[in-house]
Amino acid sequence: MKDQKTQMKIMLAWTLAWVVSLGILTANNKLAAENSLWDNIIYTIIGLIINLAIGIGMIIANKNLFKTYDELQKRIQFEAMAITLGLTVVVGLAYEVSFDFGIIGKEPEFEYLMMFISLSYIVANIVNSRRFR
């Protein structure tokens, strides 16, 4: 369990670093578009490479955290992932079809998908954890 707490801290540090690097990259692009301050493709490419490298570190940290889970925790996570995947495919495609037929006016964006995946995973995790209490 102590190992799990350490791995959790490592994973959170990587996640925070990834979010910060993504924020800097987005801000860089916005600044470049507005006043050409960082209007240099080299900076963007360097930022992108750093962001991808940190992202890979975050994935490895997450995998290492998963290894510390016991069988119940793994089952909770697997089921939450399965529910999230299913919901994303079903709701995502239904949204796409609804947009194509003009039922929904707002075009599906990647940000909505990310938000939906995050929320589904959090809710599925909470519900699943309560089920085994």
Binding site: M1, D70, E71, L72, Q73, R75, R131, F132, R133
Partner: peptide, 19 residues
């Protein structure tokens, strides 16, 4: 045993079968 307290609780309550 090397599992979490939650796992022991779930096994005792017969909500979860151990490996």
């Amino acid at each position: 045993i090397g599992v979490s307290r939650q796992a022991i609780n779930a096994i005792e309550k017969e909500k979860f079968d151990p490996s």
